[in-house]
């Protein structure tokens, strides 16, 4: 939406430029309206209604305005509350793990002493090219004793690991997300590291800084903006947790159909044919994601509260 803000041109020039400008932004605008704003508006309206029947339920149904009833129903349902709790727990596991892994990988490959940094950068990035569903299916095979050579090998040496038990399942999912997206986040941080002028390193070295000091005092503070960005992406992505648990769900008793809020919304829309409740749940997740991003940005951007 930046284009509206970036073109505050005076009246006359604006009029002559209007039509070609619209020609360029129209494809985006149309798609944005059709696939972003219109569905949001539709979901918001839909979430205020419910389908009511009577008697045996075979007469013509009525669409009734229920205002916020779908929201209060969702928020007061123990299953939905549990799914929100699970999601926050997953955030606590996943976000630090992801940011730390991506940062360490980026720093390692940018030390200048790493072996074949370009090769490994591609290797670490490659999982990002695998669609989430496929990745989860593959990991699913590795998580099941009947099909996993790793678990069979561990069992042979006396370690009975059950990745998909209810105690381990969040870590099993975090592992898949980490494998999928750590490389992508690493690339963002690598780009930031590469944009730091080498003179700064030289100056620091002359002042007697070793590799550790370089990392703590030069590199990390200078890529702080990118780390914040990566953290934000991870928080938002984590709140949308859906594909991994959905695909793993048939493989374990630890994942219910309402394991995460997005899964609960999906179940309502696609298996229970109740799009209104699904819309309400989706809106709740969107509001939480918005609020958490806002709070996070407020914390990291407030003056005098630099993390390091």
């Amino acid at each position: 939406m930046a284009f509206t803000r970036d073109t505050p041109t005076p009246g006359v020039r604006q009029r002559t430029r209007l039509s070609p400008a619209w020609g360029f932004v129209a494809p985006f605008t149309v798609m944005f309206l059709a696939f972003y704003l219109a569905p949001i508006a539709y979901a918001l309206v839909d979430s205020l209604f419910a389908t009511k029947s009577s008697g045996l339920g075979f007469g013509p149904p009525q669409r009734v305005f229920v205002f916020l009833r779908n929201y209060t129903d969702a928020l007061s349902s123990p299953a939905f509350q549990a799914s929100l709790g699970r999601l926050f727990l997953f955030c606590i596991i996943e976000v630090p793990l992801m940011v730390a892994t991506a940062t360490v990988l980026a720093l390692l490959l940018e030390t200048g002493k790493a072996l074949w940094p370009r090769f490994f950068r591609v290797v670490y990035f490659m999982p990002y090219g695998v669609p989430g569903v496929i990745a989860t299916l593959l990991w699913g095979f590795l998580y099941i004793p009947a099909t996993s050579p790793v678990l069979q090998g561990l069992k042979a040496i006396g370690i009975g690991l059950v990745p998909l038990s209810s105690t381990n399942v969040l870590f099993a999912i975090a592992n898949i997300s980490l494998w999928l997206y750590a490389g992508y986040n690493m690339i963002i941080l690598t780009a930031a590291l590469q944009s730091i002028p080498t003179e700064i390193y030289e100056a620091a070295r002359i002042d007697g800084a070793g590799e550790w000091k370089l990392i703590w005092l030069i590199k990390l503070p200078l890529i702080r903006g990118s780390i914040v960005l990566v953290t934000l992406f991870t928080v938002i992505g984590t709140l949308q947790l859906f594909v991994e648990p959905l695909v793993l769900s048939p493989l374990t008793t630890a994942i219910s159909s309402d394991f995460t809020p997005n899964m609960a919304a999906y179940a309502n829309a696609f298996t229970k044919n109740n799009s209104s409740v699904a819309a309400a749940m989706a809106v709740i997740v969107a509001i939480i994601a918005f609020a958490m991003s806002y709070i996070f940005l407020r914390i990291v951007n407030s003056k005098g509260r630099q993390a390091w």
Binding site: A79, T252, T253, A254, I255, S256, S257, D258, A267, T271, K272, N273, N274
Partner: peptide
């Protein structure tokens, strides 16, 4: 359909 997901969830 609601019953199916309820039973599967409760069974699990």
């Amino acid at each position: 359909p609601s019953l199916y997901s309820a039973i599967t969830d409760n069974m699990k």
